[in-house]
Amino acid sequence: MSEQALPMRPDAVETMAQSAVDHGVRRRRRREFVFMLCGLAAITFALLMLSLLLLDLAWHGLPRLSWDFFWNFPSRRASQAGILSAWVGSLLVILVTAFFAVILGVSSGLYLEEYAPKNWLTNLIEINVNNLAGVPSIVYGLLALGLFVYGLGTGRSILTAGLTLALLILPIIIVATREAVRAVPQTLREAAFGIGATRWQVTRDHVLPAALPGVLTGVIIGISRALGETAPLITIGALTFIAFLPAPPITSQFPFISFEWLFDGFTVLPIQAFNWISRPGSDFHANAAAAGLVLLAITLLMNGVAIWLRYRLRKKLQW
C-alpha cells in the first residue's frame, strides 16, 4: 500500500508543479494579451485621428482643387486664388536644399564613419551633430538671416531659403548616413582591403552602394521635413504675395542656362496655406485645405519614390 502510495507522490508533486507552471504561463499569456490590446488600441487611435484629419482636409479642400488652382497666382478673391507661385517656389527651394544637403550630409557622414580618427574632436563633432538635429527650426532661420542674408549678401532669395533648409536637415542626413554606413558588414570592407583596395575605393565601390538604401531614407525624411517648414523661411523674409515666377533656368541666349532664379523672391506652399488659414472669414479656409492636400500629395509622392528606389537598390545588393 505504502509502496503504491509512494509513486503517486512524485506524480502529485509533478502535477502540482505542472499546474503552477501552467498557471504562470497563463498569467504571462494574459499579460501579453493585455499588452497587445494596449498596443492595438494605441495604433488604432493614432490611425483614426490621422484619417479623421485627412478626411477633414479632403472634405474642405477637394472641391477647390482644379486646374486653375494650380495655375493661378494668389488673389484677394478666394475663388480665383491659386498656388502657382507657391508650388513653383517650394519645388525650387527643395531643389537647392537637396543639392547642398545631400552632397554635404552624405560626405560628412562618410568621413565621420570611415575616415575620421576616433579622438575628442570627432566626439565633439558627433555630439554637436546629434544636438543640432534637435534645435528648433526658427533658430536656423535667425542664423540664416545673419549669415546668408546679411553676411554673405545672398538676399531674401530662393538660394538663401534652400541653404537655410539644407542646414536644417543636414544633421538628419548625417545621422542617417552614419547609421547606414555602420550597418554595412565589416567583412565586406576587410575583403576589399584584403585584395589591396584603398580606403577611397572601398568606400566608393562597396560601402556607399551598400549603404545607399539607408542614406536615401534619411534624405527623404529630411526633405519631407524641409518641405513643410514655415518659420525659418518667414524669418529670412519669404514673401506672401508674389504674382510672378522666378526667372526661367533656360534662356535663349548663350550660355542657355541661367541661375538668375536663385536670386528671386519666392513663397512656399506652407506659407501660402498659413496665410490663407489665418485670414478673416472662412472663404479662404477651403484654399488652405486644398494647399494642404497638395503639400501632402507631394510628400507622399516623394516618400513613394524613395521606397521604390530603396526596394530597387536593395534587390541589387548581394554579399
Binding site: I234, G237, A238, L239, T240, F241, I242, A243, F244, G265, N275
Partner: peptide, 11 residues
C-alpha cells in the same frame, strides 16, 4: 499689365 512686379511679405 505685369510690367511692374509687386511683392508683399508678412514680417
Amino acid at each position: 499689365k505685369n510690367q511692374v512686379r509687386v511683392t508683399v511679405g508678412i514680417s
